[in-house]
Design a protein around this nucleic acid. Structure first.
Lengths: 213, 213
DNA sequence: GTATGCTTCTAGACAGTGTCAAGATCTAAT
DNA sequence: ATTAGATCTTGACACTGTCTAGAAGCATAC
């Protein structure tokens, strides 16, 4: 959200020159996307709902983002940046390679489950333009965190790329787990139980890392 | 407009008593769903598009399936049954536990990539009713194939449940891999390359299975 | 100080969607 | 033969994303 009384409820950003020209609509729209998603889930998103939330007309977003896909693509890029930050923070705590990888896995799934709609949108290729350069860069930055931690297992400083089977395995496992939980395929382990289940799964994965050393 | 010369191209089914009453609408609609998805992808689906394809009015499906979610739920249940069959066929070929598990993984991902829209719908909880008994049963049957193969690793005949870390790991890995490919996060390995990449990933996973023995 | 041009945003229209209510049509049982 | 019930159609409603035209404000030049 943004400022205070502000009836329009989105203005905030330093500049609000007039009541007609918003001044900082792009960022306000991106914030509105987050609010809509957080409140109503991934399918509550609509261009018009976001525009309403931002207090502008339904056609206003088009000027800045082209179409709905453009807006969601920009939002997804922001989200990948947030994921990268979360992963970095988790990696910083642990130094031992295996412990660090586990911490990364926990942080990754933690992010996904803390922001379900956001995470689902990040991987919904039908709604976003996965080829958009800024988005590609942001997603690869997040992915590089995993690759780097996997590379550290074998003492390599250089990060690996997606082709490495170990990297692919780690990413697939955490992404698959997160998706299964989000899509309610694992409702048996609801509540906070996912954390322990995830821990057990990562423990089961550890021997594969040891073998790669 | 559906009867004879039948440009609608869906009637077929043995019984077609009149031009007004379809006679086998439910199954015809489910087939139409498959055709629409196969042709236009997961987002080409719409209740009205399916009705058009089946040659009935846009409100006809409601009588049999309630709403769009009901129709997709029924379709998802059918799809899980198809997946179960594919997994059974793959498991039957291999007898050695590790080889069988790899074959299952390949068959699982193969199914997902052969029917992208179908697979995505099966796990789109926003569009289907994941609690529907028939669907739950169908999905658990598919899942049981994996659980059983994992249980065989440690010589157990009894299938494990979702709580077992090894089962969770295997399912998460193949589901995550399939999803990443389908959502174009792994476009670097396009074409048929996914099969070799998946093979390498499963090989990397094998040590984890050995440790569980 | 006014006029011009450009960006930003609004207003309205359009085809498309899912769902609901009423009614038409066919089947089947009495 | 009549009636009851299931099946399907028609029309309406609110909603969606996108397109067009135009209004509103800002910035620069004269």
């Amino acid at each position: 959200m943004n400022t205070a009384a502000d009836p329009a409820a989105e203005g905030s950003a330093a500049s609000r020159p007039s009541s007609y020209h918003h001044g900082a609509l792009p960022q306000a729209l991106l914030s509105a996307v987050g609010e809509v998603l957080a409140e109503g889930g991934a399918d509550a998103f609509s261009l018009r709902a976001v525009a309403r939330r931002a207090g502008v007309s339904h056609a206003a977003p088009a000027h800045h983002f082209g179409d709905a896909r453009g807006l969601l693509t920009a939002y997804a890029a922001q989200s990948f940046a947030a994921l990268t930050q979360a992963l970095q923070a988790a990696a910083a705590v642990q130094t031992e390679p295996v412990a660090r990888l586990k911490a990364l896995g926990a942080a990754y799934v933690g992010f996904a489950l803390a922001h379900p709609a956001r995470y689902q949108l990040m991987f919904r290729s039908a709604r976003i333009d996965a080829q958009e350069p800024a988005l590609r860069e942001a997603s690869q930055a997040a992915f590089a965190q995993l690759a780097q931690a996997v590379a550290a297992l074998s003492g390599r400083a250089q990060a690996l790329d997606a082709r490495d089977p170990q990297v692919l395995l780690a990413w697939s496992a955490v992404h698959g787990f997160a998706m299964l939980v989000l899509e309610r395929q694992l409702d048996s382990l609801r509540g906070e139980a996912w954390a322990t289940q995830l821990g057990a799964m990562l423990d089961a994965l550890a021997p594969a890392w040891a073998a790669a050393r």
